[in-house]
Design a protein around this nucleic acid. Structure first.
Length: 197
DNA sequence: ACATTAACCTTTA
DNA sequence: TAAAGGTTAATGT
């Protein structure tokens, strides 16, 4: 995404988050630009009953909470490290200095934000017109779109049943029931509990 | 720690 | 009102 040297020359530092560490919480005032160097960070919310909804899972090269930096609004979500993660952190004001002096950086961040909007549009539509198998198919098709090998069963879904459920608003049991039916109809394969799509 | 199963309950087409 | 999906709880890997 963004050239790391530019970030460091503008005062960025490198921070390590352990699994379960919180990068920021819902309601916090956005104060930093974050770029993942290594690791996995999830963006989530909890409903009234405490059920988790995963808004997205971010990996190496992705920015965390980027869109909120352009708004004078608090974070609408939490960002939590799923595994130990290395993150470049730069104060918001310095980030905007970069944008001023190096406007080329916009052409790095706009496609990234557009990609996220694309994911949101896809998921919103299948969530709204519910139907569990459509929701899971939309999610898996999205994953497959970003996977090199497009042939059948080539993608091992890198998510647990619980994560699939949290990403689609379904219960784990429904995810299990639906993927079993999908295996029966040949849409996917299950090998020692791993899903191949 | 994650996945499965089953019995039961609630909501929806 | 039957079917679909969620809840609970016990059990398996």
């Amino acid at each position: 995404m963004i050239n790391e040297d530019i970030l460091f020359s503008f005062g960025a530092d490198l921070r390590t988050f352990d699994a379960e560490d919180i990068i920021f919480s819902e309601g916090d005032v956005p104060a930093f630009f974050f770029l993942i160097v290594e690791g996995k960070i999830k963006i989530n919310n909890y409903n009234e009953a405490g059920k988790e909804f995963i808004q997205g899972i971010l990996l190496k090269g992705h920015s965390v909470g980027l869109s909120s930096l352009f708004l004078s609004k608090n974070y609408p979500v939490n960002a939590v490290a799923e595994i130990e993660s290395e993150v470049i952190r730069l104060p918001k004001a310095h980030f905007f200095e970069i944008l001023k002096k190096h406007p080329e950086v916009y052409s790095d961040i706009i496609p990234f934000m557009a990609e996220h909007m694309h994911y949101k549009f896809l998921m919103m539509q299948s969530m709204a017109f519910h139907n569990p198998s459509d929701k899971l198919l939309t999610l898996m098709n999205y994953l497959k779109l970003h996977h090199e090998d497009k042939s059948q069963y080539s993608l091992q879904i890198p998510l647990t049943r619980q994560q699939l459920a949290s990403l689609t608003g379904l219960s784990v049991e429904t995810v299990i029931r639906v993927i079993k039916n999908m295996e029966k109809t040949g849409v996917l394969k299950i090998q020692n509990r791993k899903i191949f799509y």
